[in-house]
């Protein structure tokens, strides 16, 4: 059974009172679940949140499935998101995504055998002047080359 940590529960309760309407707490609560559940939101955690927040699970599902930053499937410890939108594509972003996949012997959106990596192609991350770039968990890495990107991933603890 999934449950949030004590601090996680306290966080969700604070968020329920933070905005003008309780329902606004759904996005922050899902972020919290994802953080405490190794980077993804499981179906059972939605049921859990629904009870904890006293908000219908359909309302939580609706948010979970609409927004791309919530992972509906397990991801690696490091979720590597390579921008493949226009300015990054013009500067080698797609080739970099391919290079990372082949170097780590991974298919896109898969979790590596050791659980460390998932590589995804994503849309514009608003760092177009530093193309190509990737986001690893919360952190932006900009102005990359294929080699630099591999080096960054290998260097992660």
């Amino acid at each position: 059974m999934f449950s949030l940590s004590e601090e996680g529960v306290a966080f969700v309760k604070r968020e329920l009172n933070r905005y003008e309407d309780r329902r606004s707490a759904v996005i922050p609560a899902l972020y919290r679940v994802q953080k405490e559940n190794k980077g993804w939101v499981s179906p059972e955690s939605v049921t859990y949140l629904s009870h904890l927040m006293d908000i219908p699970s359909a309302w939580i599902e609706e948010v979970l499935t609409f927004y791309t930053m919530f992972n509906k499937r397990p991801v690696g410890k490091y979720h590597v998101q390579v921008c493949c939108n226009i300015s990054c594509s013009m500067n080698g972003g797609r080739e970099m995504a391919d290079h990372l996949c082949s170097t780590l012997k991974l298919k896109e959106d898969e979790v590596s055998g050791d659980g460390r990596y998932t590589i995804s192609r994503v849309e514009c991350l608003g760092a177009c002047d530093k193309a190509p770039m990737m986001q690893v968990n919360d952190d932006y890495h900009e102005g990359l080359t294929n080699d630099k990107a591999v080096e960054i991933l290998r260097g992660l603890k």
């Binding site: 939108n85 226009i86 300015s87 849309e123 514009c124 608003g126 760092a127 177009c128 002047d129």
Partner: peptide
């Protein structure tokens, strides 16, 4: 919610 591809001024 800056998202228009190519835009990075608000960030």
């Amino acid at each position: 919610d800056e998202g228009e591809p190519g835009t990075f001024k608000d960030r």
